[in-house]
Amino acid sequence: MDEGAPLVVFDFDHTLYDGDSGSHLFRWLIQRSWWRMVLALLIAPLFGPMVAFLPTRRVGISGFVWAGTIGLHRPRDLDAEIDRYVALHGGQIRPRLLPIALDVLHRHREAGDRVVVATGAPPELARAILAFVAHQDVPVVGTQVGPRLGGIGATRHCHYEMKMTMLREAGFTAPVAIAYSDSSADLPLLLAARKPVVVNPKAGRVAMFRKVLPAGTPILNWGCAGRAGEPVA
């Protein structure tokens, strides 16, 4: 890929994929055994409310990740479970990939743009899901994990300002030409882009996006039911 080509960054969840892929994965990991489900219920009063608020979301999610990964000790152990999860659930996962989003991604690649997916999910999860549509070779920057208290935890969460940091560290140092995301957690990315595009936002966030992003920023719906944005045929 031409290093001088326009850099185009896609979020993954609610942008290319209809839903929260990480939550789906970790729910499955927890539901593998009864004692993990009991453990998740026990920690839910503490960690559950944290998930709802941006400043504490990372800590809240990490509690449930830990419950689902006790017994795993290395990132490659989690990658193996991710591949197993995707293989077992292809029939449910494949329909969640948004055709309009995939068409936009494909057109950028055909145009020679430098395309990267930046996600708060583990990168192997996005890669494995994109393999269903032959885009597994798209570079993915995602949350890094490592051993924690007998399980796996995030060592660096690819989220908010850290997403920009991790993109730069991965070699994507050029100015962002276009960024696609649904989330207010990606405001640093959207504000850094010459052309931000909001896709599938929550209805309650539309006014905020219109206020803080440049006038005329597209706010689109790529097929996420229950999400806002101008429908795209």
Rank of each mutant, 00 (worst) to 15 (best):
V38C: 07
F64Y: 14
L72I: 04
L54D: 09
F64T: 09
D20K: 04
A67T: 01
G22T: 12
A67K: 02
H73Y: 07
D20W: 05
T56Q: 07
D18G: 08
S33I: 00
R32G: 12
R74K: 11
P45Q: 10
S21K: 09
G48M: 09
S23T: 06
V38A: 15
L41C: 09
S21M: 06
A40F: 12
L41F: 02
L25I: 10
H14W: 14
T15S: 01
Q31S: 10
L78H: 02
W28P: 12
L46N: 00
W35V: 13
L46Y: 14
R36E: 02
A40K: 10
A40N: 11
F26L: 12
M37Y: 00
A52N: 02
L72V: 02
R32Q: 15
M37A: 04
V65W: 08
M37L: 06
F53H: 15
D18H: 11
D18L: 04
Y17L: 05
V51N: 06
L42W: 12
V59K: 09
H14I: 00
H73S: 11
T69S: 11
S33R: 15
V51D: 07
H24C: 02
P45Y: 08
P45S: 08
V65A: 08
F26T: 13
S62F: 06
L41V: 00
Y17D: 05
R76N: 10
P49H: 03
M37W: 03
W35S: 15
F47Q: 02
H24V: 04
I30M: 03
D20A: 06
D20L: 09
G22H: 06
W28E: 13
